[in-house]
Amino acid sequence: MPTIVSVDDSTVPGEGSSRLLLLVSSDNKHIVVEEDIMSRSRFISKQVEGFEATSQRHAILLPFSSFVLNKVIEYCSHYRGYYLLEDDPDAAPPGRSPVREWDQEFLDVDRNMLLRIIKAAHYLEIKSLVGSCARAIADMIRGKTTEEMREILGVENDFTPEEEHSPSSKCTG
């Protein structure tokens, strides 16, 4: 559950054609963004529905840095008003993530940043961004050895020595 704090209506205007939201990042930066831009996020949409039910508007505290949050807002701003199939809750899931040229340039960042963006997008339930990041990560690990993958992804080997030497005894899903 996200942490929600009450905010002054003068800080976050709640009326008008372009309503604003106050997002607070983990490094305590306050970012004001138009609600319409963030409507691609199902998490934010659910929060806004909650505000409407209680007639109170709040700031939304998010568990990632302002640097990552700004990247996500940049993505949402770019696709403001666009229909993306992956973000349609009523549409069937498209399977593989579609290739979008702009996304490829947008995600041309270092691997740490990429992993942080996908984590944030997953938290905010922006499926199109999660899909594009997933594709970028898949491109990054394609053809790599197990050791190289551990280094790229920053994942530790948590297999027991017995499991490591006997592939058939590893987890099966």
Partner: peptide
């Protein structure tokens, strides 16, 4: 979701040996 975009079995087999979580997925 990441592995949905990986289409070669060699890479998937390597992924399965990285860690328990990745092995499962």
């Amino acid at each position: 979701l990441v592995f949905t975009d990986v289409d070669d079995q060699t890479t998937l087999a390597s992924c399965a040996q990285v860690s328990r979580t990745l092995c499962d997925a």
